[in-house]
């Protein structure tokens, strides 16, 4: 879903850069309050994993492919602030070194994939797990559905940006974008839930959302479920 140069108008490119830079600064402030030292190496491997997994385009039919996004996974593992910054790093390296995603579209790509697909969906997740009975199974099912949704939501916002840019009318682009990205999103959900189910077995305390945000009602259940 990396937008190349030329798809967005100057107004959309600049305003999305503005939102992304503001979010980045806010994330720095927030990380310095909450991001624990024990997650530092995990931040490195998450960045490496997201980058490598994004290279693996899988066919979804219709002569089309899709790939893992990883923003929601990064936010669940590292918290929304560091998760956001990991996506910024991945997208910047992809754009500057690998010409995957335009440089002028970087603000929009960070907004769509990092902020919408990652941070926003992370907060949706924290709201949902407060109202459902949570165990190992429901945790993984919820992450599956929300990571699927994260790709669909990011593609919807991408459609909106293309429409505001005057590239293509919203009613034309939205159904196609959401259609393809619903299938891609299922791949996203499967990968996210698989990685989390592995970490849940070996080191549940290395999942930020369990050890930091939902300490009281969730962590004990998870660790109990593992034992």
């Amino acid at each position: 879903m990396h937008i190349p140069d030329g798809f967005l108008s100057a107004e959309v490119a600049i305003s999305t850069f503005g939102v992304s830079i503001a979010s980045g600064l806010l994330a720095i402030k927030n990380a310095k309050k909450k991001f624990s030292e024990k997650f530092v190496l995990l931040a490195g491997v998450t960045a490496a994993f997201v980058f490598a997994a994004q290279m693996l385009n899988f066919p979804i039919g219709f002569g089309t492919s899709g790939h893992f996004l990883g923003a929601f996974l990064a936010c669940i593992l590292l918290g929304p602030s560091m998760g956001f910054w990991i996506m910024v790093l991945v997208l910047v390296v992809q754009s500057l070194m690998f010409a995957d995603g335009g440089i002028t579209a970087l603000g929009a790509n960070v907004l769509n994939m990092g902020l919408i697909g990652g941070v926003l969906c992370y907060y949706i997740f924290t709201l949902i797990v407060k109202i459902i009975p949570l165990g190992r199974g429901t945790f993984l099912a919820t992450t599956f559905f929300i990571s699927t949704f994260s790709v669909i939501l990011a593609s919807a916002v991408c459609s909106l940006e293309l429409a505001i840019s005057g590239t293509i009318p919203f009613v034309v682009v939205f159904p196609s974008m959401v259609g393809f990205h619903t299938i891609i999103g299922i791949g996203e959900g499967l990968i996210t839930a698989s990685v989390l189910s592995y970490i849940l077995i070996v080191r549940p305390d290395l999942i930020y959302v369990l050890s930091n945000e939902l300490k009281t009602n969730l962590k004990e259940k998870m660790v109990e479920g593992v034992a």
């Binding site: 720095i28 990380a31 310095k32 309050k33 909450k34 991001f35 624990s36 030292e37 997650f39 530092v40 190496l41 995990l42 931040a43 490195g44 491997v45 998450t46 960045a47 490496a48 997201v50 980058f51 490598a52 290279m55 602030s81 560091m82 910054w85 990991i86 790093l89 991945v90 390296v93 992809q94 070194m97 690998f98």
Partner: peptide, 18 residues
């Protein structure tokens, strides 16, 4: 790319840790 991202991720973690 994977090695660069690992380095950058660790770097971000060190810089932004509380």
């Amino acid at each position: 790319g994977t090695l660069i991202l690992f380095g950058l991720g660790v770097g971000a973690g060190v810089l932004l840790k509380r």
